[in-house]
C-alpha cells in the first residue's frame, strides 16, 4: 500500500519515508487552503455578477477616479509611519530614562493618545486647531494625527525591542569604555530595531487602512474619500465601496507579501 516513488531501485529508509509523508501532508494542506480561497473568491464574484445587481458602467467610468486616491493613501501612510517610528522610538527611550521629566513626558503622551479615539484625534487636527488659528494643510493634519496615534501604540514595540537586548550587551559595551550614547547607538539599537521590524510592518499595514478615517474630514482625497464622493453623488455606494475595498485589499496583500519576505530574511541564520 501507500505511494511508491518512481525510483524503486533504492529502498528508502524509514526516516526518509516519514519525512516524505510529512512533506506530502503539508503540501496537501496548502493545496486545500488555496482551493478553498479560490472557491470563496469565486462565490463573491458570482454573487456580484448575478444575484446582486451592480452597475458595470459606473465602475468603468469611475475606476480611474477612485484609483487616483491610491497615491494619497500610500503617501499619507508612508509619512505617518515615519513620524510614528520617530515618536515611538523617543517615547520608548523616554520610558527607559531615569530622568523624571523625560519619563513623565513619555508616559503622559502614551496615556493621552491611547486614552482617546483615533477618530477624535483626526478631527481635532482638522477641525479644532483652526479655531485656534492654526490651519494645517489637509495632508499634514492627517499625517500628524495618524503619526501621533500610531507612535503611542508602537512605543510598546520599541520598548519590548530594547528590553529584548540582554544586560550583558550593555555591560560588554561599557567595559569597552563606550559612553551610554555610544552603547545605545552601536549595540542596543541595532539589535532592538531588528527585533522591532516585523511588528512595525504589521502596524504599517494596519495604518494604510486606518488612513481611510482621514477621508471623513473631506480634505484629503485618498481612496476612501473618492469612493464615498462618487458613490453618494450617483447613489452607487455599493459599487464605489467595493472598488475601494479591492484596492485596499490589493495594497494589503502586497504589503503582507513584502512583510513575510522581510521576516523570513531576518529570521534566517546569521544575525
Amino acid at each position: 500500500m501507500g505511494i511508491l516513488s518512481k525510483d524503486q531501485s533504492a529502498p528508502k529508509s524509514q526516516a526518509e519515508l516519514l519525512y516524505e509523508a510529512q512533506v506530502r501532508k503539508e503540501r496537501r494542506f496548502r493545496i486545500n487552503v488555496a482551493i478553498t480561497w479560490g472557491i470563496l473568491l469565486l462565490v463573491l464574484v458570482l454573487l456580484f455578477s448575478g444575484p446582486i445587481k451592480i452597475d458595470k458602467e459606473f465602475i468603468k467610468n469611475n475606476m480611474l477616479f477612485i484609483a487616483g486616491g491610491l497615491w494619497q493613501t500610500i503617501l499619507i501612510s508612508v509619512l505617518s509611519i515615519l513620524l510614528a517610528i520617530l515618536l515611538a522610538l523617543l517615547a520608548a527611550l523616554g520610558r527607559l530614562s531615569s530622568f523624571p521629566p523625560l519619563y513623565a513626558v513619555s508616559t503622559f503622551y502614551v496615556s493621552l493618545i491611547r486614552g482617546t479615539p483615533l477618530y477624535l484625534q483626526i478631527f481635532f487636527f482638522f477641525l479644532a486647531l483652526p479655531q485656534l488659528g492654526i490651519n494645517l494643510p489637509g495632508l499634514w493634519a492627517g499625517v500628524l494625527a495618524l503619526g501621533l496615534n500610531y507612535g503611542a501604540y508602537m512605543s510598546e514595540i520599541f520598548r519590548a525591542g530594547l528590553a529584548s537586548v540582554g544586560k550583558g550587551q550593555r555591560e560588554a559595551a561599557m567595559a569597552l569604555g563606550m559612553t551610554p550614547g555610544q552603547t545605545m547607538k552601536r549595540v542596543i539599537l541595532p539589535q532592538a530595531l531588528r527585533f522591532a521590524i516585523p511588528p512595525v510592518g504589521n502596524e504599517f499595514i494596519a495604518m494604510t487602512k486606518d488612513s481611510a478615517l482621514v477621508s471623513a474630514t473631506g480634505f484629503v482625497h485618498e481612496l476612501m474619500w473618492r469612493a464615498t464622493k462618487v458613490g453618494r453623488a450617483q447613489f452607487h455606494n455599493l459599487e464605489a465601496l467595493i472598488m475601494a475595498a479591492i484596492f485596499y485589499w490589493i495594497v494589503t496583500l502586497i504589503l503582507t507579501f513584502v512583510q513575510n519576505k522581510i521576516e523570513a530574511h531576518l529570521s534566517k541564520g546569521d544575525r
Binding site: 550583558g168 567595559a175 569604555g177
Partner: peptide, 17 residues
C-alpha cells in the same frame, strides 16, 4: 578606568549583530 581594564564575561557577550 574602563579604558585601562579589559573584561571577559561568563556569557561572552559578543555583539551578535
Amino acid at each position: 578606568v574602563r579604558l585601562k581594564t579589559g573584561m571577559v564575561f561568563q556569557e561572552f557577550n559578543l555583539f551578535p549583530h
